[in-house]
Design a protein around this nucleic acid. Sequence first.
DNA 1: TAATTATATGTGAACTCTCACAGTTATTCA
DNA 2: TGAATAACTGTGAGAGTTCACATATAATTA
Lengths: 338, 338
Amino acid sequence: MYHLVTMKTKRPTVYDVAREAGVSYQTVSRVINNKAHVSEVTRTRVLDAIKTLDFRPNRAAQLLQTERSNTIEVVLFYFGFNLFLYEMARSAQRLGYHFSISAITEQEFNRTLESARSRFVDGLIIVPMAPIAENYEELKRLTDGIPFVQVGANLGTDFPSVSYDQTHGAHLAAQHLINVGHRHIAEVSGPLQNHDAYDRHISWLDTLRDNGLRPGTSVEADFTIEGGYRAMSHLLDEDADFTAVFIGNDSMAIGAHSALRERGLRVPDDVSMVSFDDIPEAAHFVPKLTTVRQDFNLLGQMAIEYIVSMIDNPDIPVHQRILQPKLVIRESTCPPRT
Amino acid sequence: MYHLVTMKTKRPTVYDVAREAGVSYQTVSRVINNKAHVSEVTRTRVLDAIKTLDFRPNRAAQLLQTERSNTIEVVLFYFGFNLFLYEMARSAQRLGYHFSISAITEQEFNRTLESARSRFVDGLIIVPMAPIAENYEELKRLTDGIPFVQVGANLGTDFPSVSYDQTHGAHLAAQHLINVGHRHIAEVSGPLQNHDAYDRHISWLDTLRDNGLRPGTSVEADFTIEGGYRAMSHLLDEDADFTAVFIGNDSMAIGAHSALRERGLRVPDDVSMVSFDDIPEAAHFVPKLTTVRQDFNLLGQMAIEYIVSMIDNPDIPVHQRILQPKLVIRESTCPPRT
DNA sequence: TAATTATATGTGAACTCTCACAGTTATTCA
DNA sequence: TGAATAACTGTGAGAGTTCACATATAATTA
């Protein structure tokens, strides 16, 4: 009994195409790279030869020579923003880049960067959980010349980054609760090592202080539904005195709502909630969530555009691209009972 | 005024390492590939040289020679399963592969495969919306020898695939509604060109027939929240006679619930709902969703494991890996009013 | 028309690694 | 101890492309 051996048919090379078209291999190279100095006649002749031989340039050989892979790699330190992976992939492709993912822990960062370098990744999108370096120079040294863009705020540092203005967003959210009449406001924050979460937390604190209010209890959670559930349960055990909660994202709000409901508390009647993100579920939850809207697709798209512009022009001045979030008021907030 | 020119310092090669260690370049190659026939002494000597020179093998040159990129690429035809991208990325890395994404439309499929081939992608994970080929041979011809695994059912065909048994899952769901006492059951299906959605639809039909019931109105939607909302609105306009709805996934159920609520109908009191997936939100929605659970992380992991085993052993017999979903009964279903 | 320039095409070399094979030394066994 | 075998190490060649340069032809200008 035989089994099929897939005969490894040798693929045609530039030389084969050159012979077929009656030109030199260099001319073929010029054609496949859309370079100048090729007459229309020979160009079409080469193109025809490419078609008849079903020639595809060998990327490995090109890579060896050019040291450019046309690849953008996103380095994910946590399973947070995966929402925008699809959109990033599409944006990258639109701009002529391949898109690859490394989902890593902090210990793997160095190895990942080394690998990226040896594969000639052209640009990096970094989505950190916690800060990954002290300053731009240090991170630049780590990536060894590969341009990178960070997603998410990194307050006080000078990385090239795209982010939403969390301070502003959190102010909007907290001030809304206060304007509606709340005086006892608790918090379920995201992990405070994360800059976005930290900025929201600080801005919550600041907004309360500026309004002459003392902050309620704050519990730190992990951005997940379950985490939100646990944090709210904990909060209710500690201090049931609040009439509103400021929550680090919609997922945690959904979990927190479960915990409230379990104890017979209703949103917004007994407790108001504001959160962040405006995930698709937010507008259809019961109650519909009042939330600070952030468009992750847009953020992902901007990250790709920024990194591509850095690749094309290494001398582009480093800057931060910051989007302003909007507060979307829905059903999860109302004035407190009197 | 000068500006910093990043001096392209030439990276060390196997030759440099060989000189440093006092051996031949071939020995260096043996060491970096963990091959046999290298004495412990020379191995450590080479390793030391690698360390002092900070040598990293040039993947492009290796690729040119070996024609293996150690890359698995996932080809996404729609933004559905992105839930498991993170898990797939991690699984791939655990097994020593890089992970890249192509998010494409059907027209781009051929170009994507050509690109994959010229980049020496080792394996493909295909997540189709609609069927992409008639049979295994055809698809094998398209991918030109690159092994692939399809995610999702492809009933009647013989692709290597990982999927959940939708027929079984849908039977569980429909039978549950019937067992609880429903006789008028409508449907909001996923896009019927999608095999998973189609299987659920047919199984819904079959289960009703086997129970001697006539199917209610069925509306096709697109797996999104908004789509579910529109479909349910449409359904309510057409035929308000049903007491339960069979819904193609949790997202659409959440949208459908909004539409019901808008018309003053309550779930499950007025209308029962079953759906599919058990997304994290499902257990925390109001009402908690009765749903057919599918573990996408597991599915992604299995897809990676399957493709890696195909890469390692091309003669592995083609088969389908099928998981059985479970019905999770929560709050969105109850007996109909009498 | 000769000199100058622009355009088109070709040749040699290099990019860095691995494969195939050859040669050398160490080990085993009768 | 000598032959056979195993383990180790080295050399030549080539993988398929692009870069730098050289040459040939055509277009432009004085």
